[in-house]
Write a protein that binds this DNA or RNA. Sequence first.
DNA 1: CTGAAAGCGCTTACAG
DNA 2: CTGAAAGCGCTTACAG
Lengths: 348, 348
Amino acid sequence: MATISDVARKAQVSKSTVSRVLNGHSVREENRIKVMRAIKELGYSPNAQARSLTSGRTNVIGVMVPDMDGPFYGSILEGCQQTLWFHGFYMLVRSTHHEKGSEPNLVKLLWEKRVDGLIILTPREIKEKPMQEVLKELVSTNFPLVIADGDIDNVNVSGVWVDNFLGGYKATNHLLQLNHRRIAIILGPEDAPEAIRRLNGYKRALKESGVPVDENLIHVAGDYLAESVFRIFPDIMAAGPTAIFATSDELAYGVLEACKQHGINVPNDLSLIGYDDVPFAKMLTPKLTTIAQPLTALGQVAAGKIARIISGEEREIAKIILPTELVVRESTTSLKVSKEVAYSKTKV
Amino acid sequence: MATISDVARKAQVSKSTVSRVLNGHSVREENRIKVMRAIKELGYSPNAQARSLTSGRTNVIGVMVPDMDGPFYGSILEGCQQTLWFHGFYMLVRSTHHEKGSEPNLVKLLWEKRVDGLIILTPREIKEKPMQEVLKELVSTNFPLVIADGDIDNVNVSGVWVDNFLGGYKATNHLLQLNHRRIAIILGPEDAPEAIRRLNGYKRALKESGVPVDENLIHVAGDYLAESVFRIFPDIMAAGPTAIFATSDELAYGVLEACKQHGINVPNDLSLIGYDDVPFAKMLTPKLTTIAQPLTALGQVAAGKIARIISGEEREIAKIILPTELVVRESTTSLKVSKEVAYSKTKV
DNA sequence: CTGAAAGCGCTTACAG
DNA sequence: CTGAAAGCGCTTACAG
């Protein structure tokens, strides 16, 4: 494979000159042409490793995700990759498969100087102490870092996320406007920042409507898996809700399945709203009303941010909050008296 | 950041010795200990770029996919990334977003010597002529290359894919065993290798059961999108099928939607089988009977293959065909006379 | 504008 | 087993 020396020889100039045309520095036009011709004839392309060694840049951005086989992170990654490519970066992906203690991966990536920047999309892991420490150190080093869809309280770092408070608020408000008053909420992991924010949005909406918050209507699934709903479903229904706000579409799907098993009709007996607007949301029966998160945009914004941080365009740490959107489909309907009767007849 | 020279100085040995312990070559135990200690104290980690420059290896594998936001490639990528990591490789992902003419991306990746090997998962692009030529050249260079889920006729290259013929056969046979005789098939892209194979499996199954192939029952959607079904749905039903074999779950979902619009009950009026067993297949109503493709395994096998090719363990070009599995759920049922009557009453 | 030289951080024969 | 030296393919001051 041709090297810069080959090009220099063929063009009858020095390596320095070839390097200059490669990097767009000023070179006599005549020489530029000779070099360009030699490059073309030899099919030369600069060796990225050698370039990185001298420039200190790799043009690669590392992205850490918990998984890529679900409907959630795939969309974000697609957004990242598009924008990263646009800015001339390659994307190195490390999926931790929801493993705890993934900070060593991250450290390795950095210490090997493999990446120019990092986008971290592992909300769960971020909360762990060792991870926090690694991140703190990174921040103090000014290493280009963007946290996406995860919040980090103690560390002042660039981040992009979706407005979970407002999302929770909108979801709840939609149900309130449909005259529901007994609205259950199902959280995934209890202590996750996004869960807390959605819950706060839920509480705020209730308060604004003068509906007291009933702790019996607040349930924790522990994670965002549909199966986790089955176990707690009897408890949920025991509190007599007329509507459920499931804080992920997966959870909402779990509710739907449980309802089918128990002969509860959604939305006639029970209204249901999800969260995420993942692709399958509209494939469910009934089609799921939900809060759409701009997943692809999240990835794009995170990628654009890291590109600007690296280029020096963005110097101060900034957080961006993306809006959510209510998508009304078929799983919610207004509460009517007749429906209440229908509901009270079902047994769980 | 510490370099090998720092370590050498601290440990009072030469860089060569440090390099040797780094690479597991024989070193006096005493020196090894000194070096290890120095490495730990300095928090040293070898610079990957410098290593690559001398070794000629990057420990990065490039993976090309058409998209990563659908349910299909995400699972494969997850499998790839797990296995690649296990073998000590990083995964560089390039999603072409179904763009035509993505071979320049590939060429760039290679010419810059960024990757030690390539896994290509872009069935559509593979068929294009420029791509074919690039691949041919790669093969002639002996560059580590694995094609996954895509077939390539003219080039002798390592590949992994799923048994599409048998998948089509199994799907059709399942319907035949349920006494269906008028079985429609919906293909995605007409000329795609996997489509042709599934169709051949379909034909074979019919022939073995003595059912003549009726061209009026063979339909082409053009792609694998649900919406593409709507346009051709009237044609499909005009031929009077009692069962449909949709060659992707997306297509099957499209059929399901169309049936709902037309008041056709699946499976009572019409049996439906999909293909892929993508996560949403079991979320549909009725839960979709389908042919499961081992997507994660596909990624794992492809990754393992490239690792072995690079390490030299696998020298001859080999193709691996993974099996499919029939997953019976709720969208298919046996044809009974009463059902036929019910069907004939529906209008499309 | 241009070339010779040094250097980026490693690895690898080559002597010893 | 070990060290000095050369070299991987670039880029970047430094002279000219």
